[in-house]
Structures are given as structure tokens and as C-alpha cells.
Amino acid sequence: MRTEDSTALPGQAADSLEVDLARLIVTTLSLEVSPEQILPEAPLFGEGLGLDSIDALELALAISKAYGVQLRSDDERNHRIFASLRSLAGHIAKHRTG
């Protein structure tokens, strides 16, 4: 699990959606990092935050409830959508209904 300096997020991600989404990720998945420790461009899976497919399902449900964006498990774009906090926030910003 990546635990970078907590000063990284405010300087690198002024976008409030990224900040809100980082909070949602930490809360939904009960992660032992603070939202500020999730770097916008760091991978969410593998060597980054270390999320797995079950985490993705839980996160997709939480995103659907919070933002009205449907993320399907069979979507071929999921590897790009879930690549990083920034890519996920970009997808949500483009498709949100709520």
C-alpha cells in the first residue's frame, strides 16, 4: 500500500472531485491511509494503493450511489477508468448525473 507524504495531494490535486473521491475510497474500503495520501496519478491497483477486484466492485457501488455513474464489471475500459484517482475522477466528472 502506498503511503506518500501527506502534503502531496493538496499541491497536486486541487480538483475537489479528486479530494471527495479519495475520501470515498478510504471510507468505502476502510483503508488505513488518509485521503491525502492517495496521489492523483498513482495506480489504484497493484503497486499503488493495492486494491483488488472485490475493492473495485465495492467502489463501483459507492460511486453509483454518490455520483449516479454506473461502472460495469464487463466494461473493457475499466483498466483505464480505475487506473488512478485522477482517471477515475475524470470518468465520473464526464458521466455523473447527481
Rank of each mutant, 00 (worst) to 15 (best):
E4L: 13
E4G: 08
E4Q: 11
E4R: 09
E4F: 11
D5V: 09
S6M: 15
S6K: 15
S6V: 14
T7V: 11
A8I: 15
A8H: 11
L9P: 03
L9A: 09
L9Y: 02
L9Q: 10
P10D: 10
Q12G: 01
A13L: 05
S16D: 14
L17D: 00
L17S: 00
V19Q: 15
V19F: 09
D20L: 05
L21A: 05
L21Q: 10
A22Y: 05
R23H: 12
R23Y: 09
V26Q: 02
T27Q: 15
T27M: 12
T27N: 13
T27V: 14
T27G: 08
T28P: 09
L29F: 07
L29V: 05
L29T: 04
S30G: 15
S30A: 15
S30V: 14
L31D: 08
L31R: 06
L31V: 11
L31W: 02
L31N: 06
E32V: 05
E32C: 06
V33H: 10
V33F: 04
V33G: 02
V33K: 01
S34Q: 13
P35T: 03
P35F: 07
E36W: 02
Q37F: 03
Q37D: 05
I38P: 01
I38T: 00
L39D: 07
L39A: 10
L39F: 12
P40M: 04
P40R: 00
P40I: 05
E41G: 11
E41C: 04
E41P: 00
E41K: 11
A42F: 00
A42K: 02
P43H: 10
P43R: 15
P43S: 14
L44E: 01
L44V: 01
L44W: 06
L44A: 03
L44D: 06
F45Y: 08
F45C: 03
G46D: 03
E47R: 03
E47H: 12
G48S: 01
G48N: 06
G48D: 08
G48H: 03
L49D: 09
G50I: 01
G50P: 04
G50E: 02
G50R: 06
G50F: 01
G50C: 05
D52S: 07
S53M: 10
S53T: 08
I54Y: 11
D55S: 12
D55T: 07
D55I: 09
D55M: 07
A56F: 00
A56P: 03
L57P: 07
E58N: 14
L59I: 01
L59H: 05
L59M: 02
A60K: 02
L61N: 14
L61Q: 14
L61E: 15
A62C: 08
A62K: 10
I63V: 14
S64M: 12
S64Y: 13
S64D: 15
A66L: 08
A66Q: 10
Y67I: 01
G68V: 13
G68W: 07
V69G: 04
V69M: 01
Q70G: 13
L71C: 03
R72L: 01
R72K: 13
R72V: 00
S73L: 09
S73Y: 07
S73T: 08
D74N: 04
D74F: 05
